[in-house]
Design a protein around this nucleic acid. Structure first.
Lengths: 343, 343
DNA sequence: ATACATCATGTAAAGGTTTACATCGTTGAT
DNA sequence: ATCAACGATGTAAACCTTTACATGATGTAT
């Protein structure tokens, strides 16, 4: 039973007294085989403990049951929750997931391209806005692919993300509802669609409230904690201070809070701050950050579902799936301080 | 060049005007082939863009270049950093990593066992103290395996972790050096080696300082935030309060801080608190938590290195690799309050 | 009764590699 | 000059599946 070498389809065939073709059919196209023989085959499978050799199957089929997931930083806490969604969906359909970590290094990207070329992965999930493979191979035949968070530069690849514009709109609307009129926007100058769209949400919200845009309080950072801190310093050098900081992401918001804290201000009494993403730390910093939640597990699930659909159908049904982001209210926002002018 | 169907070894052989055997040798045993022909083969490879079909290779070799990593919760932020270490080391040796998420569910574990049986993974990295496969298959032939954090119950599987006893000793020694004499230990009753060893470090530290053990201030929780809070409540019902809380992990420590905060105490003025693990949140809570750092990326790297060694040598050189944990001093520890008795 | 469709099963090829064994040519020792 | 040893390469089998096609049996319509 628990022999030294794993049972093959031939072992099963011998015991069930049928041909290997019938065994294969009994497993993969059960309706094509008579009830009685299917029974015999199943018994033989139980006896031998047979599982089909995935290597041989993939070789014959020219397609594996693995999905390659490539992310610039798999250590990013934002990543792990997505992974959960991806993994659940994949496993439920018999696929395994293979992870790749490029660190934005083209060399590493290339090594993963080899995985693709050598047929080890049937599909690709990309977390980077650009194809992580060197230029010359930019045109290499890619397997069915799906982007997460943002469309892939090369085009033609559908993606699953969050409605950034709507999310940003929720944040700015909250601030407006609290009574803020001078709301700074700390953005991200890297030209990523997500950031551009968040800015659009900010603009639209202000516009709807009849507040004219004020470019003096719109700053471009790079999405890091440091850039949030830096933005605060810049604003303090100008003549007009905002009463609230709307940040393009949580990292920036944390930086803003640090910068404000260093100058002795209290949040939310003196200034309100909002983020975007709802990173795991957001609830632990003090005050806990009011932000926009990315439904990460759902995003992962959707992305994988879309990819699997692509894998069977061939043609994508949608080119862009945007999930609804939720506002999570914590403690970093309040009405603008009445005493502000006195400070 | 960029043909519709990927180049095979035969295409290369034809262009290089040699047999496919020579091509294979030129790639995998270059010293066995004449310089001149090796050159021709390399040129042909460059022309065709050939990469060896991993499915065919694995089938022939009876062994894949994938490592299965099984963890109970891949969404755990502690996990992602380990993953980085695992991934880097694996990729550097031409292996890919395949991730599995059991959620402590035997059914799911079984599905991953299939991956193993079907030869899709050459090795196994386990994050769970027990084999995640149902009982009946407990005895199934496993590929070379390595545990992370703790030994695998079944035995015979080497593991890579941190020296928990030494880490705990560093924490208790810090508290002792600050002048604490009544140090509570909030443990974890689940019988995991790591927790037992941390308790041993606590006992040894107290013993070395000549302080008799006081079981009234040693509590057993379950490693969650809630259990930390609960422990605080329990201690306040007893007659003797400690001046410091040494916690079995950061989650518990966070719970203790929350519990103490809810009662209006200030940390570290009124009570000192230490954790263990250095989870990503530890630096964001306030006060920032003094704790013991697990060198996570290094653990991942070592675990993978050990597994790869096992894969080539067959026999493990070590059965247990313990890395040195570091004390990270932040703001949750100070000398015991002089005013304590007045409170 | 004949022809034909249908169904269940078997035969054999193909998928791309690796490698034991065979072959052939060259070199060095006698 | 002969033989042995060696080095480089080729031939072909094997790894385990899946599936197009062939086969034979059974049932149905004429």
């Amino acid at each position: 039973m628990s022999n030294s070498t794993p049972a093959t389809i031939e072992d099963v065939a011998r015991i069930a007294e049928v041909s290997i073709a019938t065994v294969s059919r009994a497993i993969h196209m059960p309706e094509k085989v008579a009830n009685s023989t299917r029974l015999k085959v199943n018994q033989a499978i139980a006896i031998t403990g047979y599982t089909t050799n995935a290597m041989a199957r993939s070789l014959r089929l020219g397609r594996s049951n693995m999905i390659l997931v490539v992310a610039p930083d798999i250590g990013d806490p934002n990543f792990s929750n997505i992974l959960v969604g991806l993994e659940n969906e994949a496993r439920a359909h018999g696929y395994g997931i293979l992870i790749g970590h490029t660190q934005n290094d083209a060399q590493r990207g290339l090594e993963y391209l080899k995985f693709l070329n050598s047929n080890q992965a049937a599909g690709l999930i990309l977390f980077t806005g650009i194809l992580p493979f060197g230029h010359q191979t930019m045109t290499a035949r890619l397997p069915p692919s799906v982007g997460v968070f943002e469309p892939v530069f090369n085009g033609g690849i559908p993606y699953v993300g969050v409605d950034d514009t709507e999310g940003a709109r929720k944040a700015v609307d909250l601030l407006l509802a609290e009574g803020h009129r001078k709301i700074a926007f700390i953005g991200d100058s890297r030209t990523r669609l997500a950031y551009t769209r968040r800015r659009m949400g900010y603009d639209a919200g202000l516009d709807a409230a009849g507040i004219p845009p004020d470019t003096r309080i719109v700053l471009e950072g790079d999405g890091t904690i440091e850039s949030g801190r830096h933005a605060v310093e810049q604003l303090f050098m100008r003549d007009t201070l905002p009463t609230a900081f709307m940040c393009v992401n949580d990292q920036t918001a944390i930086g803003v809070m640090v910068g404000l804290g260093a100058r002795g201000y209290d949040i939310p009494r003196d200034f309100s701050v909002t983020g975007f993403d709802d990173v795991p730390q957001a609830v632990f910093i003090s005050p806990a950050l009011t932000t926009i939640r990315q439904p990460r597990t759902a995003i992962g699930k959707q992305a994988m579902a879309l990819l699997l659909e692509l894998l069977s159908d061939g043609r994508p049904t949608e080119t862009e799936i945007l999930l609804r982001p939720d506002l999570v209210v914590r403690n970093s926002v309040s009405a603008p301080s009445r005493n502000w002018s006195k400070r």
